[in-house]
Each structure stands twice: as C-alpha cells, then as structure tokens.
C-alpha cells in the first residue's frame, strides 16, 4: 500500500514546501497591510527567470544569493512605488494596483523572453536522483520540506522573540495605534516584504529545480495555490500558511495518484470555496472581534 502511494506523498510534501515558502509572503503582507499582494507569484517567477540569466556568467552560490537579493529589491520597490502612495486610499484601489503590478511583471517577462519557456539551470546536488523505498525522486524533494521547516522555525522565532517581530505583531493587531506608539510603520512593512520575497526566491530555486521550465505565466499557478494555502491556514498566520500549503500539495498529488488527474486543480479551488463558506478565518485564523 505505502509502496504505491509513497511517490505521490513525497511529491506532495516537496511541492507543499515550495507552496509554503510562497504562501508566507502572502500571509505576512496580508497580516500587516490587509492587502492581498497579487504580484507575489510574479516576483517568484522573476526570481526564477533572473537565475537563468545570472547562472550564465556567475558561479552557482553567487547567483543564488544575488537572486534572493534581486527578489527582495523587486518586492520592496513594488511596495514603495505601487502600494505606499496608496496607503490611505480605499483597500480596493491598492488591490487593483497589485493586480496591475502583476500584469506588468508578466508582460515585461514576456517581452524579455519572447514568450518562450526558458530551461532552469542544473543545480547538481538538488537534481541528483535518489531512491527512497519504492520511489525514485530528485534530491530536492527531500531537501525542500526540511529547509522549509527550518526557515519557518527561524521566522516564528524572529516574530516571537525580537524587537522587529514584536513591532510586526503590534502592527498586525492595530495599524494606527501602533504607529501612535512610536513604531516605524514603513520599516515594519519593508521588513515584511524583505522576508516574504526572500522566501519566495528560495522557493523559486527549489520549485524550478524540480519543474525546470520557466515562462512568464509560471508564477501564476503556484502563486494562486499558495494564496489558497494561506487562506486555508487562516490568512495572517504563518504556521497556518505552512500547514495549508502542505495539505494542498499532498492532497493534489494523492488525487492525481487516485486517477482523477483532470480534477487535481479543481480540488484546490473547491477547497478554497468550502473553507470560505465553513470557516472563513481558516484553520489558524485570528478571531474577528467586532468592536463597537
């Protein structure tokens, strides 16, 4: 029994870990700004694309580091240019701005690549084939969940035990009051974007090492699924997003394994609808207390 299902579970855990790294960006930005950052999936795609270009001139480790820096710079620039001027505007405007940025990034990538799929560079040790029980898979499948859990642990520690973490929690609780208390809101938001985009860049290295084609639309589907994961776990909650991402990744692959390949994506989105109807705050979502 396990013999048959092992390859699907492994694939699910791997892709779940990759979704989790993207989902953290969604959930943190939502927690602090109450904004669904639609451009996040495209930052992820661009990190992959930049890697393709960097690896041609630079050694592997340098490129990986530069890719992470690039994603951080791109994310914070988007925040400065497209979201910050709209901070006091109605929430709908800032969301539309996010959609605009997403399309801009996609079309710019279309212009640069000419619309053709680029092949992600080989990262030797990540793509090495290994055997686990009955399943043959790539090394990255094993590394992803471990790395994801380590990073999430560090992040939770950062949020719980550092000054900036405390500031983040305060801002997510009450935006205006915390600014009155002397918290530098802009700094907190920038740090949020730095963390979110940095993790998305790491996620892109893992994801594209496994699924090696990048085109301008590559960020759309993982981004959307990570978003569903964030909602499933309770948007605003980091552990929630991670659990949600693993659930979605594993279920998706088990459904494919059961032979219902046609419905694997449908499942993800049905899950979103069900969650929104039954438990709108998600698994670990904060309780919404109405204040009079």
């Amino acid at each position: 029994m396990l013999q048959t299902w092992l390859p699907y579970i492994l694939a699910g855990i791997a892709v779940g870990g990759q979704y989790a790294l993207i989902a953290i960006g969604y959930t943190m930005v939502y927690g602090i700004l109450r904004l669904i950052n639609f451009a996040h999936g495209d930052v992820f795609m661009w990190s992959g694309l930049i890697m393709v270009y960097l690896i041609t001139v630079l050694p592997l480790w340098v490129s990986v580091i530069l890719v992470i820096i690039f994603a951080i710079v791109l994310g914070t620039t988007i925040e400065k240019v497209a979201y910050r001027p709209l901070r006091s505007a109605p929430r709908m405007s800032i969301m539309i701005s996010a959609i605009g940025v997403s399309y801009l990034l996609q079309n710019f990538a279309l212009y640069i690549t000419g619309g053709l799929t680029k092949t992600y560079p080989e990262i030797g040790f990540l793509q090495k084939t290994i055997k686990i029980g009955s399943a043959t898979t790539k090394m990255v499948t094993v590394i992803t969940p471990v790395l994801t859990i380590v990073l999430v642990f560090l992040l939770v520690m950062l949020i719980k035990h550092t000054k900036i973490g405390m500031a983040m929690r305060a801002v997510s609780r009450d935006f205006e009051t915390s600014s009155l208390m002397g918290i530098d809101i802009n700094r907190v938001i920038t740090v949020t974007f730095v963390i979110g985009c940095g993790l998305a860049a790491i996620g892109s290295v893992l994801y594209f090492s496994n699924y090696t084609g990048i085109n301008p639309m590559s960020g759309a589907m993982p981004g959307l699924k990570a978003f569903v994961a964030a909602v499933f776990g309770g948007i605003g909650s980091v552990p929630g997003a991670v659990v949600g991402a693993f659930v979605i990744g594993i279920c998706e692959n088990l459904i494919k394994g059961a032979g219902w390949t046609t419905f694997s994506d449908a499942f993800t989105f049905v899950l979103l609808i069900v969650i929104l109807m039954v438990k709108p705050t998600g698994l670990f979502g904060e309780k919404n207390i109405d204040k009079v």
Partner: peptide, 20 residues
C-alpha cells in the same frame, strides 16, 4: 488515459501513475 490541466508544471504524479 489521463489529462493534465492548463499551466500545470508538476508531472511527478503522472509519471508515477504510468509506472504504478
């Protein structure tokens, strides 16, 4: 017979299905 949805880039399970 199996089908994969648009924008799918994860073919792990399809390959595993064929083997299984």
């Amino acid at each position: 017979e199996e089908q994969f949805p648009d924008k799918n880039s994860d073919f792990t399970s399809y390959v595993a299905n064929a083997k299984n």
